[in-house]
Amino acid sequence: MGFPLVPPFTKEIAIQKVRLAEDAWNSRDPQRVSLAYSVDSQWRNRSEFLSGRAQIVDFLTRKWASELDYRLIKEIWAFGENRIAVRFAYEYHNADGQWFRAYGNENWEFDADGRMRRRHASINDLAISENERKYFWPLGRRPDDHPGLSHFGF
């Protein structure tokens, strides 16, 4: 059985795919997130290179152990037959209480079953004060009526 929303992508399907990815990452559940990727998925995340779901789960477990109160917004940038490019921004704080906003771009490539087989992420972190935060929804899925990246000028 394939993953929902398989290529070739229309604009509507690509937008849905981006929102499903955002929702999964906002769950902060590494096992759930990993299921969107092919078993042999290849990642470049900043300077880390990962291969396969087990490494993805390990990476995300480490990530969310240190990036506390994580909230993410993704927005489609472009799409093709089996590829989607997104931009995103997320906010989190570390164990010392310092808040950050991370900005980035991802390039995704999907297999015929709709699972992501390649993910290339470029990300930059910016230390922010607590009063500079923009994302205040309860942890978990971003509400449908919450503004997106373009609203904030990100």
Rank of each mutant, 00 (worst) to 15 (best):
F110D: 02
K134D: 00
F136R: 00
H93S: 03
K134R: 14
A127F: 06
D113Q: 13
A89E: 01
K134H: 07
A102P: 01
R83K: 10
S122V: 10
G104A: 13
H120S: 08
F88W: 06
P138M: 07
E109Q: 13
F88V: 01
L126E: 15
Q98W: 07
R115L: 10
D96G: 09
I123Q: 05
N124Y: 14
R142S: 02
E109Y: 05
Q98F: 08
L126A: 13
E132C: 08
G97S: 10
D96F: 13
I128F: 06
R133Q: 04
N82I: 05
E91A: 02
R141Q: 15
Y103G: 00
F79P: 00
N124I: 15
Y92K: 01
P138L: 09
R141L: 09
R115T: 11
N131F: 06
A112H: 14
H120F: 11
M116H: 05
F88A: 03
R133S: 02
Y135R: 00
H93E: 05
F88C: 01
R87N: 09
K134V: 01
F136D: 04
A95D: 14
R115K: 14
L126Q: 15
D113F: 13
R118M: 07
W137L: 08
R133E: 04
S129M: 10
K134W: 01
D111H: 07
L139Y: 11
R142N: 05
